[in-house]
Design a protein around this nucleic acid. Structure first.
Lengths: 115, 115
DNA sequence: TTAAAATATAACTATTTACTTATATGTTAA
DNA sequence: TTAACATATAAGTAAATAGTTATATTTTAA
């Protein structure tokens, strides 16, 4: 099958962004499920601003999109991006992040009350 | 088709290496044709040590292999590497470097005499 | 309308990185 | 065996990067 080509410079930028363990993990998680920032935070041993800054880079590159829902901002892969093809293909070589998803669901940080 | 998975950390390292315009171009060129260092040099406006250092990083990661032939050292993609799958898939999204290959062939730096 | 929660931005810092120039190593040919 | 060529390594440097803490912004709920 013929793949969607991306300008070499743009491709290098995407690869550089994915060439960071934290961001690659975030993208792999978002492939499985949209998440809000506080959910992503559960997965990493890292400050909230650090995660916010990673998400901003991914958003600036067009790789993810955000959607505010009340108090929370949900991030998801931007399937409309011309980069989605290469991202999908890369993720096929990366292990599923099911353990991380489980961590998020166990911590359930968006839970508002116990009822 | 099921793809060869790579440890996330290893994948991030590969992506970081490919996330540099010079190295991504080198890899894309080597996909089309093995090259010696002086041939690769023709393509970039950059010092010889700089190219040598890029090649070393790619070699240290197992992405390329080298073979000395007399005075020249030829570099090529390491098809035996477990990384070859992801590299191939990435390159499918990157434009062919035929113009660069033409540059090399025009300059023909390994030409030893005019006869 | 004020406090708390979720997220973003700003300012700073240590580390990494991609170059450079200078020099060393290995190979060929005179 | 020496000069020229191809390549690698060493050492230094400026810029980029990923984190930190402190603070601002936005939203919800009391």
């Amino acid at each position: 099958m013929l793949k969607s080509k991306v300008d070499l410079e743009r491709a290098a930028n995407v690869l550089k962004l994915l060439g960071d363990k934290t961001r690659l993990t975030i993208i792999a998680i978002l492939k499985q499920r949209e998440c809000c920032v506080c959910e992503i935070l559960e997965v990493f041993d890292m400050s909230q601003p650090s995660i916010s800054q990673h998400l901003r880079k991914l958003k600036d590159a067009g790789m993810v999109k955000e959607e505010r829902r009340g108090q929370w901002i949900y991030y998801s892969l931007n399937q409309q991006s011309e980069l989605y093809g290469i991202i999908e293909d890369i993720l096929e070589h990366v292990p599923e992040q099911t353990d991380k998803i489980k961590l998020i669901e166990k911590a359930n940080p968006t839970l508002q009350c116990g009822c």
